[in-house]
């Protein structure tokens, strides 16, 4: 295997005076599942959103499959088609049916025929378990169902890598697992994934590596087992102490 699929080199970003990303260096290999974890405000969501340039950055480089991220425009749109993104708040297109949500990208970006796109979409919706809701509108579905549709929408583009920005944070507890199950399946099938989450169970089950962020920096990274049992930095110990007390 050659270079990492996703490579961030010396990436810096400010929100006003706040230095949200400080000299970020991170590589994600093909097929690897990387969990990004850290206290709120640590910059983990920003890092995730920077990878497909939903957030701009000031210095450093990001390459995906060897290609540096272009400026906003047609080339960036093409590159984004290869990078799936799942949001905390689902962001399904509210005026389109579930099926249309999934077929929009394949038809408009991949220039797939409507019939092929429909067939492909139904298969994906079946895979995430919401095919029977295909003709409904997003607002008629539960949060867990919406998030699974969002995953299907990303998968429909056959992405090289998928980014998950706190995919279960907005869900009621009883719906978290139905989404995590889909994600575990994806990981098992070899999808390259960057997941911002606090779900330890998912991390242990599916992740190859855990990246711990605090104050805009990557403080440590290791296997899930090592990280959860032997964190090295004080910030990580402190953080884990807070979330694992229950």
């Amino acid at each position: 295997m050659g270079d990492p699929l996703v490579l961030m080199k010396d990436v810096n970003k400010h929100f006003g005076d706040l230095h949200v990303l400080q000299d970020i260096n991170l590589g994600v290999d093909k097929g690897e599942v990387v969990i990004v974890i850290g206290p709120s405000g640590s910059g983990k969501s920003t890092l995730c959103r920077t990878i497909n340039r939903l957030e701009t950055f000031e210095s450093g480089t990001i390459t995906i499959d060897g290609r540096p991220l272009p400026e906003e425009g047609k080339a960036l749109a093409e590159l984004r088609a290869d990078v799936g993104m799942v949001f905390q708040s689902f962001n399904l297109f509210a005026h389109k049916t579930i099926l249309e949500n999934v077929t929009l990208g394949p038809v408009k970006v991949r220039k797939m025929s409507k019939a092929d796109a429909d067939k492909h979409a139904i298969a994906l919706l079946e895979r995430v378990g919401v095919a029977h809701q295909a003709d409904k509108y997003p607002a008629q579905l539960s949060g867990g169902q919406q998030q699974r549709v969002a995953i299907a929408r990303s998968l429909a583009m056959n992405p090289k890598v998928m980014l998950f920005d706190e995919p279960t944070s907005a869900l009621d507890p009883e719906m978290i697992n139905e989404v995590l199950d889909v994600m575990v399946e994806l990981a098992k099938e070899g999808m390259t994934m960057v997941v911002v989450t606090h779900e330890m169970g998912f991390a242990r089950k599916a992740a190859n590596r855990v990246v711990f962020m605090a104050d805009g920096q990557i403080r440590e990274q290791s296997t899930p087992e090592d990280f959860f049992t032997h964190p090295t930095s004080d910030r990580a110990k402190d953080f884990l102490g807070k979330i694992l007390t229950h």
């Binding site: 497909n52 939903l54 906003e72 047609k74 749109a77 093409e78 590159l79 984004r80 088609a81 290869d82 990078v83 799936g84 993104m85 949001f87 708040s89 962001n91 399904l92 297109f93 509210a94 005026h95 929009l104 990208g105 408009k108 970006v109 969002a150 929408r153 990303s154 583009m157």
Partner: peptide, 24 residues
């Protein structure tokens, strides 16, 4: 988030506008 989701699936600015933003 609607615009972000549109851009994330690879729609261009014009496509995001005509397919997602303007209809809503």
């Amino acid at each position: 988030g609607q615009a972000e989701a549109a851009r994330s699936i690879g729609l261009t600015f014009a496509q995001s506008l005509s397919q997602v933003i303007l209809p809503q």
